[in-house]
Amino acid sequence: MNDPGYELLLWVRGPGWILALAVFSFGMAMRLFEIFALGRREDLAPPRPAERQGSPMRTVWNRFFPVPGLFERAPATHVSGYLFHIGFFAVLFFAEFHIQLFRHLLGFGWPALSAPLADALGVVAIVALLAALVSRMRDPVKRFLSTAGDYLAWALTFLPLLTGWMAYHHVLVSYTRMVALHLLAAELLLALLPFTKLIHAVTIFVARWYTGEQFGRKGVQA
């Protein structure tokens, strides 16, 4: 058939999705084993008494917020980072269409954000991500640190947001084609997540826990 929109939509809803999910679960399982099967030596130094120890779980939570003074030193990183993450997760988990997907996968759903609000949060995420890109290219530290992998991860995150917004608003190409592109972009994100720095979505919580535990046993709430 020569309508790529519809054919592509069928593919991304069918085999594409199954493939992406398989690559994701394969990659995630492999990476988690690679990381967590390395092992860790027991710390023989006696920790502080329990009541003086810092809590690793609190570190996991605390690291959602900057240590005092850090925000002022890097406002662009913080603002774009927060807005992007809030917008992205709000849309991912609370847009009606996505909840339908989760309902399909999990067997249950939850209330959605109102369409205009979800739409607005999507725009917030898109703008924030664009700002993050500009900041990455202009900030001396981030420019210095950035690798191709950082830009790849950026694109993988940005495309689903952009195509989702464009599909919802029927911008540029037909809805069919845009929805197909949106699903394709989302599947790319899913499939490559374990192999890119995007795996931080899972590992940071463990990283925070380890650090919180190390600081905590010494009596410091990190």
């Binding site: 069928l10 069918g14 085999p15 199954i18 999910l21 398989a22 679960s25 394969f26 399982a29 399909h104």
Partner: peptide, 16 residues
Amino acid sequence: PLSTPIGESGLSTGVA
């Protein structure tokens, strides 16, 4: 709904 996948992905996901 249109936003849900077509076909069964459980087995392939598990195997993967």
